[in-house]
Amino acid sequence: MIRVSHLHCGYPGRPVLRDVNLHVERGEFVGILGPNGSGKTTLLLALTGYLRPDSGTITIDGRPLEELSSRQRAQKTAVVLQDSQVRFPYSCAEVVAMGRYPHQDRWRGPTPRDAEVVQWAMECTHTLELADRPISATSGGERQRVMMAKALAQETPILLLDEATSAMDVHWRLKAFELFQQLQRHQRKTILAILHDVNLAAVFCPRLVFLKDGIVAADGPTRDVLTPATLERVYHSPALVYDVPENGTRQVFFVPEEQGTPS
C-alpha cells in the first residue's frame, strides 16, 4: 500500500529524514514514535506530498506519489493534524462537509451520498451535537474530533494521524482509538499514527516504528520492538516494560534517571 524507499527529506537548509525505508501493507495499524525533532511530522508531510523528497521515492498502491494528481492523492490519504486552526467561524458540520471536496464535482452541488457520509462520519465521532456550533467556539478536544470526522468524510483507504488525539481526555482518546481500530479491522483502512503516548500505541498498534534523528531506529511487531533496550536507545531514558496479563498488552514506565533502574 505505502512504500517509502531511501527517503531523504526536509526543509530548505535543514535535512531531517535520512534514508528512511518503510513498507506498510493494506490494513495495517502502525504507530510512529520518537522524540521531538526525530522527523515524525516530516515523514507525514512527505507522505501527503506537501514536502517533496530530496531523494528517494514514495509509492502508494505501486504508483509514485508525484505521478498522482492532487485530487487522486486526496482520495487515497486523509490526514488529521494535531493543531488545526480554522480561520473563520464555520459551523462544525460545514467543516466536516469540506472533507467531501476530493469526491465532489465543481459544478454539481453536494449529492445525497455526500450528506450520508458526513452524517456517518459525525455519528462515528460523536460530533453531531456540535454540528451547528462555530468551530471557533469548540474546545481543543472537540475540534480534534471534528477534524477526525472531516478525515473520515474524505473516505480514504489511508489515514494519517499526527498526534490527532493530543487534546482529548482519556475517555475520548480511547473512543477515538477504538474507532480507528474498528476502521482498520472492518474496512481494512491503513492507519499510520504519530504518537507521543507509548502506552496508547502499545495497546492499539500491532506494529511500531521508532524514528530517531531522522532514521528508523526500530521497526517491527510491538511485542518485538517495545523493549527496554529500544526505548532507552530512542528516548535516552531508562524504561521498565511490563506485560499486562489482563488484556495481553504491554505497558511502559519511564523512570527518572536519579531513581535508577532495578536490575
Binding site: Y50, S70, V79, Q85, R87, F88, M98, Y101, P102
Partner: peptide, 23 residues
C-alpha cells in the same frame, strides 16, 4: 466564483488544504 469551494478549504490552513487536493 470558480474557486469558491477552494476559498473555504484555504481557511483550514496550507497543509490541510493541500492534503485535501487543493493546489
Amino acid at each position: 466564483f470558480f474557486y469558491v469551494r477552494e476559498l473555504d478549504l484555504l481557511a483550514l490552513g496550507d497543509v490541510s488544504a493541500h492534503q485535501m487536493g487543493v493546489d
